[in-house]
Design a protein around this nucleic acid. Structure first.
Lengths: 155, 155
DNA sequence: AAACGTTATGTTATAGTATATCATCTTCTT
DNA sequence: AAGAAGATGATATACTATAACATAACGTTT
């Protein structure tokens, strides 16, 4: 149903590494670990859940403070998105895409933190922007997040 | 520019009190204090900011835990809205309105926490719902919140 | 008015998210 | 090999939030 193929962890890691090196930044071992955790997870994870992932699945101790810094780095490289509403983080689902990314919107399941990255029609975004500007405000980002329930978690 | 008159604190308090008594609940002194804080503020406040408000402006010590409980009560009475994105709270701007409230949407200034309560066109909400359902998700609430900048805080 | 149940508030403890600061260690460059 | 820049470790701390239990206020019944 999604518009692009699901990305494999190894493929995305490889692409992420070449992306970083083309920008003169480094995808270090620890950074790979955090990104791996997010790529392998089917849901959004918190910084502290990522330290647990590293400990339990990779046998690597990574303090939460380091995870926060690494997440900040990965977000700067557009490899990871921070979800304000959920206070959690997800891997960008378009790491493997060649084309320029449109701004994503996120549907976040309030119950299980499964996340779906969608692209809302431009016309919808435009009229939303109009409503907002009518109130003398401006959207801080076109990356919108919506609290949802996924189909497994409907009440 | 807004669709309804700005509500005065005293008027809203009176209306809130009669609303509560018609429902068999009580708008106690402490609850009035918290509601007053939100009505007087031009922006969203956190629970801890409300304890400070009570101490500094009303000379009343109100522990944060009580504020949380009171906010929960006020939200149940539809007198206050909790803003997940901002992790803060605002007074409903329609306490004085007679008519049934539509579900509100909130524009929250990321910089100063000024909040504008708007009503987005039903057609827009409908097509948003369609997009969301297309991804097999469902909006958890039609009360939407958007991170914005207000006109004073544009970069 | 006294006793009782209900509601409201106080108090303490604790969890989760997040940032700041300073120290140490790695890596790259010269 | 030395030094600078970048990355990570370690510690402290702030803010948001909830849980659990104790006490106080209020309302009703008798």
């Amino acid at each position: 149903m999604s518009a692009h193929k699901a990305q494999t962890t190894s493929g995305a890691l490889k692409q992420a590494e070449s992306l970083c090196s083309s920008r003169g930044t480094r995808l270090t071992e620890k950074r790979k670990q955090v990104l791996t955790g997010l790529l392998e997870s089917q849901k959004a994870l918190s910084a502290y859940e990522l330290t647990a992932y590293c400990r339990n699945h990779l046998g690597s101790e990574l303090p939460a403070m380091s995870v926060y810094r690494i997440l900040e780095f990965l977000e700067g490289e557009s490899l990871v998105h921070r979800l304000d509403l959920a206070k959690k983080y997800v891997a960008c689902s378009h790491i493997l895409c060649e084309h320029k990314h449109e701004l994503p919107q996120f549907l976040i399941c309030k119950a299980c933190y499964k996340v779906q990255e969608i692209s809302i029609k431009k016309s919808l975004i435009d009229s939303l922007n109009q409503s907002v500007e009518g109130a003398s405000f401006r959207l801080a980002s076109q990356q919108l997040e919506f609290d949802c329930f996924c189909e497994d978690c409907y009440e």
